[in-house]
């Protein structure tokens, strides 16, 4: 059924294998994720999106920061980088500018991308750097014990808000759209097909693309807030998820027990960072302009052939 599409996968890849398997470092399974954690579900969507796009996995790079979600890079059988906390986007920016032929995916948690790394997120969106950012938002810093994050809704009980959080949370789609992102969507881990399709879209379009996936952390966030286990949370997403593709982005705040507005909110074309740089410098310098990539692309194609992942 699932013929191997990943040249990096073992040659005699068994038929009837889980389609995600070719993109996993199987020797590292089972994962460290808790029972009912939503992160693995998003990875399944991502693997299936990779297959649907038919993209050459050798040209896909995945970059994570630190956190439970930050583990994703280490579990994927792709060229992957597990960077320092909050710095996945700067690292990915460097990769993309050094080798624009790569499809660079940033896969990390809400804390990593929007709290400690929030400034990088804003500026990558502003510059429209061609990155595909998947933010698994479990509304807390899970890996360190479930502290209140910049995304924690008001009244949520966390390790650092025992009487409930009182700070207003960041509304991530609104933030990145205002900063200039060219693609913005939000789904939950219940909405697997929509999540896969959003990932597929991000992988095939150009410009800064951002997908927020609301996801359960049953061990910390759900338990402290008496929201049941992973399955209870998935069922609540089914109830609370309200698909509104043309929603007013200012109305997308996450609340405790309130509706979760989901959808594909923004899709617009504007020159990405590289296009803007090249066009501007060409116009300014005219025949003096030397495109650094004309030469570099041929070279990096050579190198890619030699560097195998794993």
């Amino acid at each position: 059924m699932s013929a191997s599409l990943n040249p990096a996968a073992p040659a005699a890849f068994p038929i009837c294998e889980n389609p995600a398997e070719q993109f996993l470092r199987s020797d590292r399974m089972p994962s460290i994720w808790c029972p009912g954690c939503g992160i693995g579900t998003t990875v399944n969507c991502f693997a299936r999106a990779l297959i649907k796009t038919g993209i050459d996995p050798k040209k896909v790079v995945i970059v994570s920061g630190i956190g439970c979600t930050g583990r994703v890079a280490g579990y994927m059988h792709l060229d992957s980088f597990h960077t320092t906390h909050g710095r996945a986007i700067p690292f990915a920016t460097g990769l993309k500018l050094a080798n624009p032929g790569l499809t660079v995916v940033v896969y990390s948690g809400d804390g990593d991308l929007a709290s400690i790394g929030g400034n990088h997120l804003i500026h990558a969106a502003r510059r429209n750097i061609d990155l595909k950012v998947v933010c698994v938002n479990n509304l807390t810093y899970s890996m360190t014990g479930g502290q209140a994050a910049a995304t924690t809704p008001r009244d949520a009980i966390t390790a650092t808000s025992p009487y409930g959080a009182y700070e207003p949370p960041l509304n991530l789609p609104h933030l990145v759209a205002a900063a200039g992102a060219s693609y913005v969507s939000r789904w939950t881990t219940y909405h697997v097909v929509q999540t896969m399709k959003a990932m597929e879209r991000m992988l095939t379009r150009r410009g800064f693309s951002f997908l927020e996936v609301i996801s359960p952390c049953p061990t910390l966030f759900q338990r402290r807030n008496r929201l049941g286990d992973g399955l209870d949370t998935m069922k609540s997403y089914k109830e609370l998820g309200a698909t509104r593709h043309n929603a007013n982005l200012a109305d997308l705040d996450m609340t405790m027990g309130g509706e979760i507005v989901i959808g594909n909110f923004v899709e617009r074309d504007r020159p990405d960072y590289l296009e803007a740089m090249q066009a501007h410098l060409r116009a300014q310098l005219q025949e003096q302009y030397v495109d650094p990539y004309e030469h570099a692309e041929a070279e990096s194609a050579l190198e890619l052939g030699e560097l195998s992942c794993g």
Partner: peptide
């Protein structure tokens, strides 16, 4: 349909036709 495969967070099940 493999929906079970898409939902499984631990890559422990998948469906095939």
């Amino acid at each position: 349909c493999d929906l079970c495969g898409m939902y499984c967070p631990d890559f422990a099940i998948h469906g095939f036709r």
